[in-house]
Measured scan of single mutants.
Amino acid sequence: MATKAVCVLKGDGPVQGIINFEQKESNGPVKVWGSIKGLTEGLHGFHVHEFGDNTAGCTSAGPHFNPLSRKHGGPKDEERHVGDLGNVTADKDGVADVSIEDSVISLSGDHCIIGRTLVVHEKADDLGKGGNEESTKTGNAGSRLACGVIGIAQ
């Protein structure tokens, strides 16, 4: 089992970053940390998408990683996509320092995120509470600013 993974985020604009993942036990939580720069100040949706395909930019990554066919939600919700990591918060300089621990994603097994795409979005994720159909699919997080395929790390 891989215990570490990394993702280099890039987009068409100024947004870029490096996100690290570490899972010490196969059924334990995954620590997610790193930094994203070039964002507007505020909240930005942060999700693992189904495919590791960036051939047409971030759009070819498909929908959120959702092997259990659930509705979109927040990272602490029972009803959520596996890939729903909530929001990252950018400061006035456009930098989001990421520090998350998640017990639904994994670096092995059915919820493995390796080979899938991590995406940072234009807007805040409403965590499935926006009151419309799009909220239950995407959290109304808007366009995909930057993305990268999650790969095994040393």
Rank of each mutant, 00 (worst) to 15 (best):
A2G: 10
T3N: 06
K4S: 13
K4L: 11
V6T: 12
V6A: 11
V8S: 13
V8K: 10
K10Y: 09
K10S: 14
G11P: 04
G11I: 01
D12H: 09
G13P: 14
G13W: 05
V15T: 07
G17D: 03
I18N: 10
Q23F: 00
Q23N: 03
K24E: 11
K24T: 09
E25R: 04
E25P: 04
S26G: 12
N27A: 14
V32R: 02
V32T: 02
W33Y: 12
G34H: 01
S35T: 15
S35R: 14
I36T: 00
I36D: 04
L39P: 05
E41R: 06
E41S: 09
L43N: 04
H44Y: 15
G45F: 02
F46C: 07
V48R: 00
H49F: 15
F51I: 05
D53Y: 12
D53A: 06
N54K: 09
N54C: 15
T55I: 09
A56N: 10
A56Q: 09
T59R: 14
T59D: 11
T59V: 03
T59S: 15
T59H: 10
S60P: 12
A61L: 13
G62V: 08
P63Y: 11
H64G: 01
F65L: 11
F65V: 07
N66W: 03
L68S: 01
L68Y: 05
R70I: 14
R70A: 02
H72S: 00
G73I: 01
E78D: 13
E79Q: 09
E79W: 08
R80K: 06
R80F: 06
H81L: 13
V82T: 08
G83T: 14
G83L: 11
G83F: 14
D84Y: 05
D84L: 05
L85V: 00
N87S: 08
N87C: 09
N87V: 11
T89C: 12
A90F: 03
K92Y: 08
D93I: 06
D93Y: 13
G94H: 04
G94C: 06
V95G: 07
A96N: 02
A96W: 01
A96V: 13
D97S: 15
D97A: 11
S99A: 11
S99H: 08
D102N: 06
D102F: 02
S103G: 12
V104K: 14
S106T: 08
L107V: 01
G109K: 03
D110A: 09
C112Y: 02
C112Q: 06
I113F: 02
G115T: 01
G115V: 06
R116M: 13
T117C: 12
T117D: 03
L118K: 01
V119Q: 03
V119E: 04
V120C: 10
K123N: 11
D125H: 08
D126W: 05
D126E: 07
L127M: 11
G128D: 02
G128A: 06
K129E: 06
G131I: 14
N132T: 14
N132Y: 08
N132F: 14
E133H: 13
E133R: 12
E134R: 00
E134G: 14
S135L: 03
T138Q: 04
T138E: 03
G139R: 08
G139E: 06
N140R: 07
G142K: 06
S143V: 12
S143I: 12
R144Y: 06
R144I: 15
A146W: 00
A146F: 01
C147M: 08
V149R: 11
G151L: 13
A153H: 14
